[in-house]
Design a protein around this nucleic acid. Structure first.
Lengths: 137, 137
DNA sequence: CTGGGTGCAAATCCTTTGCACATTG
DNA sequence: CAATGTGCAAAGGATTTGCACCCAG
């Protein structure tokens, strides 16, 4: 595989941040060094990093894909208010895969845990009331 | 809120299946009874069911939104080959939220677990080799 | 020099929305 | 009848792709 400055920039930015950025966020950041880089290139390189095992896509319920260069097994928290993705310090439960496999005819190769709630930042702003819920009419 | 035959059909189909269908899948199915229903109506009603708490969106890494009318706390398995979403019989670990909250300044309201691997169906077809991995060039 | 990588624009895919008409309460 | 729901088509956002040009090996 060839080398390219853009690829390095995407990789390095992803490895340097803990924000679990979306492609757009990576684009905005890398653009500071490479004003002419295209969003397509960012997407291509992010996918490539995932294929190469240098990054992972984070599972999300809402919104767009988020990427994480920390490929170690760890869990995420996603804020219901602002969609921030944070790392959580909870011991990784490798035995869960075994337990889940007991009554399952398929093969389990891993798992992911996503906690949700309100992140520290949003919590500050909503101290007065409880979490904001949109109610149906 | 008003009643509508289409809404009932979407709700009933979702409650009747364990396939955790996408909007498109619901559309294809409900269309058998209501050939003129539009995909937009399916989307609208699925979102409504989620708002009403009668269904949940399933967190996924790849592909589009999947819906589940089983709102009880339970975990999912997603097949890396065919993207099938299956329920897994693993005890729900409510204490995880507490554990995760210990070193966290935000508020945790719940969590989701997604196991991944090869589903029973795909396993049959790929008996010969190991899991199919796309390698980078 | 030659194949892979990039930028750009167009194309796709999934989901949402505007609007006129149909339906429900 | 008034408000809500629907179908259709168009709009939107996110991601991918085709293609001509550029650059690293």
């Amino acid at each position: 595989m060839k080398h390219s400055a853009q690829r390095d920039a995407v990789r390095e930015y992803l490895k340097s941040t803990k924000t679990h950025p979306s492609a757009e966020m990576v684009y905005e950041e890398v653009r500071k060094q490479f004003p002419k880089i295209s969003l397509a290139t960012v997407y291509r390189n992010l996918s490539l990093l995932v294929e190469l095992g240098e990054a992972k896509k984070v599972a999300t319920v809402e919104g767009n894909d988020r990427f994480d260069a920390d490929t170690s097994e760890h869990y995420h928290f996603i804020c219901e208010e602002c969609n921030a993705v944070l790392d959580l310090e909870v011991p990784f439960a490798a035995q869960l895969d075994v337990e889940a496999g007991r009554n399952f005819a398929g093969t389990i190769t891993g798992h992911e845990v996503i906690f949700h709630g309100i992140c520290p930042e949003c919590k500050k702003h909503y101290v007065t009331g409880g979490p904001v819920k949109i109610s149906a009419k």
